[in-house]
Structure formats: structure tokens, C-alpha cells
Write a protein that binds this DNA or RNA. Structure first.
Lengths: 242, 242
DNA sequence: GAGTGGTCTAGACCACCCG
DNA sequence: GGGTGGTCTAGACCACTCG
């Protein structure tokens, strides 16, 4: 039986999950190999089988493992196609192509939520939100302006410290909100005066306009962002399933 | 206590899940409302709490519900958003909202494929493709122009007969290609002179520009389409998973 | 038949949020 | 404090797959 270093406050199933994840990513458990049975893992870790299943569930969800009823649980084959149709943690997909991605902070403030933001974040109007404006560049060319809103309540205990604007995702995950999915509402719009100035383009040129809501695993909306992207440079690829 | 009609072979948690899903989609349970507590649901359905949690888990995963620790489980907001994140067989998603959707045929020709079309459809350059241009309107307002290309080889035996432009999908499916997924490449562009004329707008106004490839279940590309959509009317909602 | 995952129980204690 | 979800147990029986 493996002794888990029972870190205070960390659920057992998380510890088991991360142990397994480590063995998979370090290829101690190799792709295609069979995982020990749930029964075996349960006794090995000294927990009940349900707990083992809970540990495994998320790894299956992430595609690291797959199950075959009556056969076993296996390590999945490495993802060949990491297409850009998945939600990724670059500042923005299109920018990760260009190497010189440099997001810069335009403003950071704490304001009461307006109706649209409140609705998207499942909070009340006038509940506080942290508003972060970022200018994204690739190769020193301004390409995107993001106007992000995150619920103050969820993150109030860390905002004062070290808000790394460049990586909101790790902020979310530090606070226990595992980023799971996003819904994007997309339109084409003309550049306003303000945006034109920021992005050094003419007023009226086409922008790809997105309203994006990011959801955590438990369904909590953690971010609502207005995104403005230069239409002539920025493009977006999505995959739709029937 | 609600009696589940214990359909043979269907797990209890699936029955509960579908019961709840039904009440959500029929808006017996309204968006924003609180679901009964897990305890309550357990006794109401006469099952253990773990089973209730299993039922709820998938609905949360799908974004129909969300949880707040120490508060409750709630019905997520409007179905509008979710529904437009799937590939559907309307002439186009945004148009199915307006009732008066009237696609009209602009042109139909058989031409050799250019490099871009050929690459998208996995055929050789100069292989024949059927090119179909369609103007889409809602409430008599022109909203979209589609410039579709389908491989002549796959559909040559039916093209002469009764090509129903309005429903390419059924054409595909008649020929044994079950439509499965689409990949869309999205940009913002200015209206060209030709497009402006067709859509009765000014040259230069922002259009949502898409290049869409539709794939059948077996992976065959069956359609490649340039789509031009009025930016001020047309919008698009997509869902991204991590 | 032996081994696997799939489902389910009837509890328990904890952490969180609210008034 | 009272109610909620979060975690966990120590079993049970079933359905599936394989040899």
C-alpha cells in the first residue's frame, strides 16, 4: 500500500489523481498500457473504490485515460492533433503562433457590474468585478484588445498580492477553479475611435468582436471578456459537432 | 417520493438525469432557479445521495446546471447560447431565428477546383466541383452570401435530377454521407463591391467572413463554403472545450 | 468462470455560505 | 446554527469481456 503524504486540506482523490497523472506524463505508465484495476488501486492507496473512481474520472475527462467495460482502464495514446479548435491557455490562440507575444496592461480597476456582465457571471448587478484591460501584440503590432471582467468575490483574497495579468488562468486554478470551457459570441464590427487609437488603425475598419465567457469545471463562470481583434490579421478557427 | 418508471436496463441515475433535463428544457425548472438540494432529491427519488450526484454531474458538465458550495445547485442561463454551438441543418444558424428565411439561388455551375478548394476537399486541382451561390435572407433582408463547393465526383449521379439547393444536407445524406462536423475559419472583412450590391449595403462595412468545411462521419469532406455575413445583424456563438 | 468496470447504498464528517 | 455541497467509506450486485 502506497502511503500518500496526506497534505492537509488536499482531498485524497486529488492526491491520487495527481499521482497517477504524474506517472502518465512521466511515462512511468506508458500509452496503451493497462492501469491496475480499480480494486487494486483502492487497496494500494488504502481508500475505497469510489474514491479511486473519482480520481480516475477527471483523467478520463481530460482524455489521459479511457475505460473498457469488462476489460480495464488504459493510458490513452498521445494526442497527435492538438488543433486550434480547443480552448487553450495562450493569451489568445492567434497570438501563440507569432513568437513575440507581448500583452500589456492598459488598466485595472474594481467596479460594480453592469447588467450584461452580471448576467454572464451569474452575479447581481452592482456586485463588484475586477476589470482588466489588456492590449495584445504580436511582433510589436497591436492585434487585440481584451476587456476582461472577473467576479471580485471569488478572487478578492489574492487580487492585492500578485495579480499576474498575463496569466489569469493560473489565477483561476490557484483558487480552485479549473478552467473547462468557453462560450464565445462572435460578430464583425467597425473599430471605434478609442479602439482605433489603441490598435493604430483607422476608425471603421472591420474588427472581429467576441464576447467570451469562461467556465470552470463546476460550471461557475470565472471570466467575461469583450475581445476586439484586428480583422485583417486575426482569425479564428472553430469546430462544430452535429 | 417520485416513482421512476424503472425502465428495464436503464440505470437509475440516467433516468433521474433525463427527468431533470426534461424539466430544465421544458422550463418547469427555470433558468437561475435553485434545484432542490441533493438530500431532498435523494429522498424524492428514493435513491442515495451519491446517485443523485452522479445524475447531476453530467448536467453540470454540459453546462445546464452549476453548483455553489454551501449554497445550492442552480439552473444555468438561457438555452439560446448552447443551442447555437452545435452544427445544425438550417441554411444557417442565425437565420433560423427569423422566421422568414428564404435562400435564393444566385448561380450554379460546374468548374475545375482552384488550389484552396481542392485542398479543403481532398481532391486534385482542376478536379470538377459543383459551385453553388446562394443569397440568404431573413425577413426579406439579405444577410448572407454563401459560395459553396462540393466535389462533383461524389454527387454526379444526382446533380442532373433535382438538386435542392436549399437542403444540401439531405443531398449528402441521400448519397450516404452522414454529416458529422464542420470546421470554420472566421475573420472580419470589408464588403467588396459585388457583395455590397448583393446585400444592399455599403462597400467597406464589416462582414463576418467564414470558410467552412463540412465533414461526413467517415471523415470525407463534402462541402467547402465561403460565407459572408452582415456583421451588424449576423452573429455566431461557439463553444470551446479545453 | 474469473476479472473488470458500472451502478448503488446508507450512512458519515467536513467546508462553505448565509442570516 | 442550519442548510448546502464536497469528500469518503465498505461494502453489494450487475453487465461486460475474455479465454
Amino acid at each position: 500500500m502506497v502511503e500518500l503524504t496526506k497534505t492537509a486540506g488536499v482531498p485524497v482523490y486529488v492526491q491520487i489523481r495527481e499521482t497517477l497523472r504524474g506517472e502518465i506524463t512521466q511515462e512511468i505508465l506508458k500509452p496503451g498500457e493497462k492501469l491496475p484495476s480499480e480494486h487494486e488501486l483502492a487497496s494500494r492507496f488504502g481508500v475505497s473504490r469510489m474514491t479511486v473512481r473519482q480520481s480516475i474520472a477527471e483523467l478520463i475527462d481530460e482524455g489521459l485515460l479511457y475505460r473498457r467495460h469488462g476489460v480495464g482502464t488504459f493510458i490513452a495514446l498521445p494526442h497527435l492533433e492538438r488543433d486550434h479548435t480547443r480552448l487553450t491557455n495562450s493569451f489568445d490562440p492567434a497570438e501563440s503562433k507569432g513568437n513575440n507575444t507581448k500583452p500589456s496592461l492598459l488598466s485595472l480597476e474594481i467596479i460594480p457590474a453592469g447588467p450584461k456582465v452580471a448576467k454572464a457571471l451569474y452575479i447581481k448587478e452592482d456586485d463588484l468585478v475586477i476589470r482588466i484591460k489588456i492590449l495584445g501584440c504580436a511582433n510589436n503590432v497591436p492585434i487585440t484588445v481584451h476587456d476582461a471582467h472577473i467576479p471580485h468575490k471569488l478572487f478578492s483574497h489574492v487580487i492585492d498580492k500578485n495579480l499576474k495579468v498575463q496569466d489569469l488562468w493560473s489565477l483561476f486554478e490557484q483558487c480552485g477553479y479549473k478552467v473547462k470551457r468557453a462560450i464565445e459570441h462572435i460578430e464583425a464590427r467597425e473599430a471605434t475611435k478609442e479602439l482605433a487609437k489603441l490598435m493604430k488603425i483607422k476608425v471603421g475598419v472591420p474588427l472581429l468582436y467576441k464576447e467570451r465567457t469562461i467556465y470552470a469545471k463546476d460550471g461557475t463562470p470565472v471570466e467575461f471578456t469583450y475581445c476586439y481583434n484586428r480583422g485583417d490579421i486575426y482569425s479564428l478557427t472553430v469546430s462544430l459537432e452535429r
